[in-house]
Amino acid sequence: MNIKMPKWFYQLASPKWSYDIMGMLMPWFGLAALLLLVTGIVWGLMFAPPDYQQGNSYRIIYIHVPSAILAQSCFMLMAVAGIIGMVWKMKVAHIVAKSAAPIGASMTIIALSTGAIWGKPTWGAWWVWDARLTSMLILLFLYLGIIALYSAFSNKASGDQAASILTLVGVVNIPIIKYSVEWWNTLHQPASFTLTKKPAMPPEMWVPLLIMVLGYYCFFAYVLMARTRIELLEREHKSGWVTALLTDTP
């Protein structure tokens, strides 16, 4: 396939260029993440008003919702990176996808466990087969499959491609899985309260949530870049620029 892309796109294919640019961007994202997360947490946990129905227990959404959003965004990112890696044979894109997988899985675990904690006061049980939670659980399985596939190949380039194929198959299936789980859920008497139902939140509640979501994205970008840089160094350990980098530093 020969699709013309802007120059920076091809520059991304160079491990050294990517390594350097990520090194430059990282501190900014780290700082933004720190500021946003601290603001969001303090605001959400201490200053936002309590919910008229759930009291203070709803405050877990400031952790739960951003994690759930990130868990899904991360999968999309991996799929896009996988396509770029396969179409343009770009190793860096594959490395980004690989570095993202464990972060996405962690986000899914956080979303699941906060959902369970939230479920205790709301439903009176740690686990309820709620559509949203069930979809999240399946998403976690998809992540685990991809991570397992990466590690099953001794050759990294092959593992990258295999996992990219699986990610694409997964991303095509996610809407179908979601739809079927929601349909299944309505079939078996839905829980009276779903975690997704948002009864018109007042701004004092959703603004800190928005800040948290942005903070999560920045944090995600920060961790992703850090992981990608390490993986780049590892894979390129024989090439000139890594040797130069490692010997030149005082």
Binding site: L149, A162, S180
Partner: peptide, 27 residues
């Protein structure tokens, strides 16, 4: 097809495939 070249493909294939089977199972 993804696991055919791997020595320990047997369990891995279940991990990869089962989540994708869920919609068919539900319906």
């Amino acid at each position: 097809a993804l696991t055919v070249g791997l020595r320990k493909g047997g369990v891995l294939i279940s991990l990869l495939v089962l989540p994708l089977y869920i919609p068919v199972l539900i319906f």
